[in-house]
């Protein structure tokens, strides 16, 4: 995107219910270019739902979402074209089990961007190399560790060269000793200027990496600010209580 106007992502008053259950009750959030924003909040507060809405995997009930100035929730937009610009990585990896690592990574570049197979493979191998996965290119996902699988899932998203990367609790399904390797990858992406919106339970990581932290509570962003402020001097009482609980669980 040459000279993309305005923020990378702007979410305006987004509402979302599943049936009668309201999940998002008016979310306003802006992510600047090259900014890293972490979403924290209790289980069920709506973090995954918000990310899925941004990727148009869930339709929203009200509100608007803009990516680099273009409204992606406008009626009649080509969702496939929008999703090409936004990468998402899921908690459960969701790699394609019937394909090798290389095919997982090159599928979308080949079928969506219509790259020649050789070119798609070259680009995929460069990415795999960068994240220490080049020797796994021919393996199938079930032969990889959880950490490796999640790194492949990140590479798969990056292969589409997204302007914005959404990460949904990408370390929650991992054994503790595998968390570090995935977090290292995300740090490296942040250093490279990737714009990211990250839902996470890893408070230490959020404090390290985020430019801004948003505390989501019952479908609303209750408090947001720089990590030092949110983690040291949270204003809202519910934020304090949430962080208290997290601390007791030993995750801060």
């Amino acid at each position: 995107m040459s000279g993309a106007p305005g923020p990378a992502l702007r979410i305006e008053d987004v509402h979302k219910s599943f049936g009668r259950t309201p999940v998002l009750l008016g979310i306003d959030l802006t992510v600047a270019q090259h900014e890293v924003v972490c979403l924290i909040g209790a289980s069920g507060s709506g973090k995954s739902t918000l990310l899925r809405c941004v990727n148009l995997l869930e339709p929203i009930d009200a509100g608007r979402i803009f990516v680099a100035g273009e409204e992606i929730t406008a009626p009649g937009v080509d969702v496939n074209r929008i999703r090409r610009r936004i990468g998402i990585v899921f908690q459960a990896f969701n790699l394609f089990p019937h394909m090798s690592v290389l095919d997982n990574v090159t599928l979308a570049p080949r079928k969506v961007l219509r790259l020649a197979p050789a070119e798609a493979a070259d680009r995929a191998l460069a990415l795999l190399e960068r994240f220490g996965l080049a020797d796994k290119r021919a393996e199938f996902p079930d032969r990889l560790s959880g950490g490796q699988q999640q790194r492949v899932a990140i590479v798969r998203a990056l292969a589409m060269e997204p302007e914005l990367l959404l990460l949904d609790e990408v370390t929650s399904a991992l054994d503790p000793e595998l968390v570090a390797e995935v977090l290292a990858v995300i740090r490296e992406l942040a250093r490279g200027g990737m714009t990211m919106l990250i839902a996470t339970h890893e408070m230490g990581f959020a404090r390290d990496i985020a430019n801004r932290v948003c505390f989501l509570d019952a479908g609303r962003i209750l408090e947001e600010g720089p990590p030092e402020q949110i983690f040291r001097t949270p204003r809202a009482e519910r934020t304090q209580r949430f962080l208290q609980r997290v601390m007791e669980a030993g995750r801060l």
Binding site: N55, L57, N80, R81, R83, R84, I86, G87, I88, F90, A92, N94, L95, F96, L107, A108, K111, V112, R156, A157, M160
Partner: peptide, 13 residues
């Protein structure tokens, strides 16, 4: 369904 969601999230129709 997460398989299909993963594919769609990459821009596949």
């Amino acid at each position: 369904p997460s398989q299909s969601a993963a594919a769609r999230s990459l821009g596949l129709s």
